[in-house]
Amino acid sequence: MSVNYRELTINGLWKNNPGLVQLLGLCPLMGTSNSTVNALGLGIATLLVLACSNAAVSMIRNAVTPAIRLPVFVMIIAALTTCIELLMQAYTYQLYMILGVFIPLITTNCIILGRAEAFAAKNNVLSSAYDGFIMGLGFALVLLAIGIVRELLGTGMLFANMHLLLGPIATNWTWVVFENYQGFLLAILPPGAFLVMGLLIALKNHIDDRVLARKPVEVVTSAAADRRVRVTGVVE
């Protein structure tokens, strides 16, 4: 099967974004996006599991019967999630404790099983791994955007506690955007996640509508130019 990597990229990052369009994986989006470091940590973990599980599913797609396909997919995803969990315990233990149950719950994330069934089970390893990476990146970027907005509105700072993920090199990365900021508690509470998520979806829909509104004008202009070329034989 021929795979269009440009189309996969556009779908994963924009047209079919897991967070903004498919509205999958909303629990981690809402539960861990109250800061940049939490959002980035879970986003990277989900991306790695999604890319690796897609590749693994593609490798065994012809060796597994339909009767046991879904249980096998779940076992693969669970094994990879456990690997990520152990790595986080070893290298980012404090962040792992903060994220808590949302790390093992990557196993039940609908995005991962959905891509395994819809794409990886039907395509080669390279394209499946790329699809998983792009879908995971799209999800991670939405998660990161929500985390940045909520942290900024809630605390007036950005990139606080980044050392929990990146180590001592990020100890002094905290950026105080608003001095003497009193904080906006709603932004870092669960309702704040719903509000920011709704605003991001509205922004994406607005951009799509603007792009769609311009297309007929471009088509008409192009058609008119083609008619002039055919009549006059001159390319403008």
Score class of each variant (00 low, 15 high):
M1P: 09
N4A: 11
R6E: 08
E7C: 10
E7N: 12
L8R: 13
G12F: 05
G12I: 05
K15C: 09
N16Y: 15
G19W: 02
Q22I: 11
L23G: 03
C27G: 14
C27H: 11
M30V: 04
S35E: 03
S35V: 01
G43V: 03
T46C: 09
T46E: 06
L47G: 06
L48T: 14
M59A: 08
L70C: 11
F73T: 15
I76S: 09
I76C: 07
A78G: 14
Y91C: 08
Y93W: 09
Y93D: 10
L95E: 07
L95H: 06
M97F: 09
I98N: 03
V101E: 02
F102V: 02
T107N: 01
T107W: 01
N109E: 03
L113T: 12
L113P: 06
A116G: 15
A118C: 03
A121C: 04
N123Y: 03
N123L: 00
N123C: 00
S127A: 10
S128G: 01
D131L: 06
G132H: 10
F133T: 15
I134K: 14
M135P: 06
M135V: 04
L137W: 05
I146F: 11
V149N: 04
E151N: 09
L152E: 09
T155Y: 05
T155W: 03
M162R: 08
M162Q: 06
M162A: 04
L164K: 00
L164I: 01
L166Q: 09
I169Y: 15
A170R: 10
T171E: 13
V177W: 07
A187D: 06
P190N: 08
P190H: 08
V196Y: 03
V196N: 01
I201H: 12
L203R: 07
D208L: 13
L212W: 09
L212F: 12
A213V: 00
K215I: 01
E218W: 13
V219R: 14
V220P: 08
A224T: 15
V231Y: 11
V234A: 13
V235E: 04
